[in-house]
C-alpha cells in the first residue's frame, strides 16, 4: 500500500522533489489516487448497500426461501442442459420480484386450491380479464411463491412480439414461448405447467358491463390435453375485472390503428390512474379434470368437453363473487 500524497510520512521529500518538475502529471496522479482509494470504494459501498437493502426488502416480500426456490428450479432446468426455450431464472427472478410486489401488496391476492396443481405436466385453463394480462402474471407468481415444489408458469405469447427488441428477449428469459401448437406440445412433453386463456382477446378486453361472463372458448387446448394425456386444472380469477374499467370498445379506432381492440378506459387520464386499481384478487385452483377421448374427433364432440371446463370455471367464478364482500378488501 502506498501513502496518500498529503500525508508526508515515510520519505516524502525525495518524492516531491522528483515530482515538482512535472506538476500536471503529479496532479493527474493525485486525482488517480483519490479515485482509486476513496471514490471507487465509496461507490462500491453505496452500490453494495443499495443491493443489500433491495435484498432485505425481497426477503420481507418473498419469504426467506425465495433464493432457495429459484436455485431449486434452476437446478431442475440445468439438469436437462438448460431450458431450450431460453428461460433464465437469474433474469426471471427479478421479474418475479416485481410481480410479487403486486401479488403481496397491491392486489393482496388470496390463493386457494394450490394443492390441486400436480407436480408434472398440467394445463391451467383460466378466465381472462382486466385489459392487460396481469391475471396471468399473478397466477404464475402464486405458483412460484406458494406452490410446493415451486413451478414456473409457461404461457404463449403473440408471434409479433418476437419482432420487438427487448420484449422478445424478456419473454424468452421469463419462460414465455411463441404461440404455436408445436411449442405447447413440447412444453407438456417436458412436464411443464402451461397456462392457457381459451377466451383470448375476447376475454381480456371485454367491457365492464360483461364482467365475469365467460366469452367463447377455443377448442385447441382440449385437443392438446387429450392428445398428450394432460390433466386440466380450471382456474378462476376474481378481482381482475375491476382493475381497469372499460366502458366499451371503439371498433373504428381499432380498425384505424390495426389493433385487435381499442378499449375506452377513462381512469388512464387521471394522474396515477395508469396503474391498475388495487382491487383484491381471489385466485382459485379447481380440482384437476382428466378428460378422455380421441384428439381427432369432431368439433361438436370437442365443444361438449370444452363446455364442461367452461361450466366449471364459471361456477367457480360465481362462487368467488358470492363470497366476496368488498371490491378492495
Amino acid at each position: 500500500m502506498h501513502a496518500a500524497p498529503w500525508c508526508p510520512e515515510p520519505e516524502p521529500e525525495a518524492n516531491w522533489c522528483r515530482v515538482t518538475p512535472m506538476p500536471a502529471r503529479a496532479a493527474l496522479a493525485r486525482i488517480g489516487d483519490v479515485a482509486a482509494d476513496d471514490v471507487l470504494p465509496l461507490v462500491g459501498r453505496l452500490w453494495g448497500g443499495a443491493r443489500r437493502s433491495v435484498d432485505e426488502l425481497a426477503v420481507r416480500l418473498l419469504g426467506s426461501d425465495f433464493e432457495e426456490r429459484a436455485r431449486l428450479l434452476q437446478a431442475r432446468y440445468a439438469e436437462a442442459g438448460g431450458d431450450p426455450f431460453g428461460l433464465d431464472l437469474e433474469t426471471a427472478k427479478y421479474a418475479i420480484m416485481t410481480c410479487a410486489f403486486f401479488h403481496r401488496l397491491w392486489f393482496r391476492a388470496e390463493v386457494r386450491g394450490l394443492e390441486n396443481v400436480p407436480a408434472g405436466r398440467v394445463l391451467l385453463i383460466a378466465n381472462h380479464s382486466g385489459q392487460i394480462p396481469i391475471d396471468g402474471a399473478m397466477i404464475g407468481t402464486s405458483l412460484f411463491l406458494d406452490h410446493e415444489p415451486p413451478r414456473v408458469i409457461r404461457a404463449m405469447v403473440e408471434k409479433w412480439s418476437q419482432t420487438l427488441p427487448f420484449v422478445s428477449t424478456f419473454f424468452s428469459r421469463v419462460g414465455q414461448v411463441v404461440g404455436v401448437p408445436e411449442n405447447a406440445r413440447r412444453l407438456l412433453e417436458m412436464g411443464e405447467a402451461l397456462l392457457v386463456f381459451p377466451e383470448g382477446t375476447r376475454g381480456i378486453s371485454k367491457p365492464f358491463s360483461r364482467r365475469y361472463q365467460l366469452q367463447e372458448f377455443g377448442n385447441g387446448f382440449m385437443r392438446l390435453a387429450i392428445e398428450t394425456g394432460t390433466p386440466i386444472v380450471p382456474v378462476a380469477v376474481v378481482g381482475a375485472e375491476e382493475q381497469y374499467v372499460n366502458l366499451g370498445n371503439l371498433k373504428w379506432a381499432a380498425r384505424a390503428l390495426r389493433m385487435p381492440v381499442f378499449p375506452v378506459i377513462p381512469q388512464v387520464f387521471v394522474p396515477f390512474g395508469q396503474m391498475p386499481l388495487p382491487t383484491k384478487y381471489f385466485i382459485h385452483f379447481g380440482e384437476p379434470l382428466h378428460i378422455q377421448g380421441d384428439a381427432d374427433e369432431d368439433d361438436a364432440v370437442m365443444e361438449e368437453k370444452v363446455h364442461l371446463v367452461k361450466q366449471t370455471i364459471q361456477s367457480m367464478i360465481n362462487r368467488g363473487l358470492k363470497q366476496r364482500t368488498s371490491l378492495f378488501f
Partner: peptide
C-alpha cells in the same frame, strides 16, 4: 422467422 416453433421438424 418470428413465428417459427422453437424446434422445427
Amino acid at each position: 422467422r418470428p413465428d417459427n416453433p422453437q424446434f422445427i421438424s
